[in-house]
């Protein structure tokens, strides 16, 4: 099934379209197909909720269980104890689960719809967009156990928590770009999923999730090679984790109470993410016309 929105459509083989045109087309497609994205997201929700034993409860339990695993693991191998360590890492696990789940699922978001793509002409960009947006719901459910942890630790229940949606918005832009990138690349390289899984795992351990950025900066390697230190600090998830942690947990030593995040670095990350998103949309749009042939 397919439909042309415009009454007349002329298609030629000459395909040299400028990146800016592609970008404009991509953005217009996403905005004009918001309803389709909404339907896809709600279909996704239904699927995840309905066919599991505990339904939505998994959204709540999953990050909590992961936190328990890391708390046990880190407490065993590390000599130095961070006060209120569960909350310390939960502030990072929650956004990371969102990012890694979306990036992992997004790799197959286009190839999964192989039949559809060969039968209907529609903007394929809606697929990774829907995947990323559906991830927001998982993140939102994760706020329930976070609220639970904060109630146990009511000192940290501050107005700073209102920063979470702002930080999440920055993360959304970055995640969306990543989802668009991997979903298109996976059409051409079907084993990308394997690589993505390993890259994500490495990325998580290299990001200051289980430890603070400050403790990373004390390492000798980083003191000797400032370039590595710069890269470590420029890692999007260093900025995001530090921001989430500052508003949820407070200072890295566990003494200071929650404080406002570093707005400047968040702003730079947002800008960079938009540029990255633009590049990824152009990349996707370049490959899109051949999806039906390759799938």
């Amino acid at each position: 099934m397919s439909s042309g929105e415009s009454a007349v459509s002329i298609r030629h083989s000459s395909g040299a379209v400028s990146p800016l045109t592609l970008l404009r087309q991509g953005v217009t497609e996403i905005l004009s197909r918001r309803r389709l994205v909404r339907y896809l997201v709600s279909a996704d929700m239904k699927k995840r909720g309905s066919d599991t034993l505990l339904g939505n409860l998994w959204w709540v339990l999953d990050p909590l269980l992961q936190m328990v695993v890391y708390v046990v693991f880190v407490t065993v191998i590390s000599k130095r104890a961070t006060p209120d360590y569960p909350l310390f890492i939960f502030a990072a696990i929650l956004p990371w689960k969102w990012f890694s789940a979306v990036t992992g699922d997004a790799t197959t978001s286009v190839v999964r719809q192989e039949k559809l793509i060969r039968s209907i002409a529609f903007p394929k960009l809606v697929l990774p967009v829907a995947e990323t947006t559906a991830g927001v719901v998982g993140f939102a459910w994760g706020l329930v156990p976070l609220a639970g942890l904060l109630i146990l630790d009511s000192n940290r229940l501050t107005l700073m928590l209102l920063w979470i949606p702002v930080i999440a918005a920055v993360q959304y832009v970055f995640t969306l770009a990543m989802a668009i990138l991997v979903s298109a690349a996976n059409v051409y390289f079907r084993d990308l999923g394997n690589a993505v899984g390993h890259v994500l795992r490495l990325w998580w351990f290299l990001s200051p999730g289980l430890y603070s950025l400050a403790s990373l900066e004390e390492l000798h390697t980083i003191k000797d090679h400032p370039i590595i230190g710069f890269l470590a600090a420029a890692n999007p998830f260093a900025i995001l984790f530090e921001a989430y942690r500052s508003v949820i947990y407070g200072t890295a030593d566990g003494v200071g109470m929650p404080f406002a995040p570093d707005v400047a670095s968040l702003f730079y990350l947002l800008l960079a993410s938009f540029v990255f998103l633009g590049i990824c949309i152009v990349f996707f749009k370049r490959l899109e016309p051949d999806f039906a042939k390759v799938l």
Binding site: S2, H12, S13, G15, I117, I120, A121, A292, K293
Partner: peptide, 9 residues
């Protein structure tokens, strides 16, 4: 409109 022509129109 699912597939783009490689040549012709």
């Amino acid at each position: 409109g699912i597939m783009r022509p490689s040549e012709g129109s």
